[in-house]
């Protein structure tokens, strides 16, 4: 039975969240929170691996208390266990501090075979946490996985993408695998699984619970080497848009453009 850990972050629904155009601040209350879309693919991959060779899935998240709802959602979608890392001292973390905290919790969880995570989060948007966690745990990682070809009790074969080629890679355990949206189509939770998840308990670990595993100087805002110096609203490149409602006129103008670009 494989022990699988899935890293999950709760994020605001990026298609609905509002920005204050003056300050560039994100109004998190303007949109519902959900599981980071890429992490849903990681969770679905875990569930498919479990279906194939058997396993136990732990969903792990660092975040505020509100993130409990996302972990419950993860249980409805197939996680067997869920842990929220919540503490004031974890807040304000950049990727390194986040990774330190997640890696500490993983060490506490104990032996594992596969850690799955998403390609990136839609709010942090760095894609760094996966490889940083792998480094801190001193295990290999495979990035940009678009397909899981095969999995057995002691190895996994995946397709890893780069800009100009795809590679079929096989590796033993433990390993961290970061997936893209192509890896699968996440299933929706069923009513029954939702009901069951409502009753299951999500564990909450505070700073004390990680003592012996985490140096608090390396967590949260205090442990974050990067800081946001300022935020500015992105000014779109101003373009002189010429709109043609008369198709014929538009085409004539485009032909002049293509000519000027040496394309005709």
């Amino acid at each position: 039975m494989l022990k699988i850990i899935v890293l999950i972050k709760q994020v605001p629904d990026i298609e609905r969240v509002r920005f204050d155009v003056e300050t560039g601040r994100i109004d998190r209350s303007s949109a519902p929170a959900e599981i980071n879309p890429f992490d849903l693919n990681a969770l679905e991959a875990a569930v498919q691996i479990k279906e194939k060779v058997g396993g136990f899935i732990t969903a792990l998240s660092m975040g505020p208390m509100q993130a409990l709802s996302s972990l419950r959602d993860a249980m409805a979608r197939g996680a067997d266990d869920a842990i929220l890392l919540e503490d004031r001292r974890f807040a304000g973390a950049d990727t390194l501090a986040t990774s330190n905290t997640l890696a500490a919790a993983i060490r506490k969880i104990g032996p594992y075979d596969i850690i799955l995570c998403g390609e990136k989060t839609v709010d942090g948007d760095t894609g760094q946490v996966g490889a940083e966690v792998a480094q801190l745990l001193e295990i290999p990682h495979v990035y940009y996985v678009s397909r899981i070809v095969n999995v057995s009790g002691n190895s996994i074969t995946v397709v890893s993408e780069t800009e100009d080629a795809s590679y079929v890679l096989e590796t033993g355990f433990p390993v961290l695998v970061s997936v893209t949206r192509d890896v699968n189509k996440p299933r929706l939770p069923t009513l029954k699984s939702k009901m069951k998840a409502m009753k299951s308990e999500v564990k909450i670990w505070h700073a004390e619970d990680l003592s012996g595993f985490l140096d608090l100087d390396k967590a949260g805002y205090a442990g974050s080497p990067t800081w946001v110096h300022k935020v500015v609203v992105q000014r779109e490149k101003t373009r002189q848009v010429r709109i043609y409602r008369q198709v014929e006129d538009g085409i004539q103008e485009l032909m002049r453009l293509l000519e000027s670009k040496g394309l005709i």
Binding site: D94, T95, L96, S99, T126, G127, Q128, V129, G130, A131, E132, V133, A134, Q135, L136, H141, Y143, Y144, K218, S224, P225, T226
Partner: peptide, 15 residues
């Protein structure tokens, strides 16, 4: 993107 985070974590620095 795959290399940077490992080195940053190993050197305990920001990326």
């Amino acid at each position: 993107r795959s290399l940077g985070p490992r080195v940053a974590a190993a050197r305990e620095t920001g990326l």
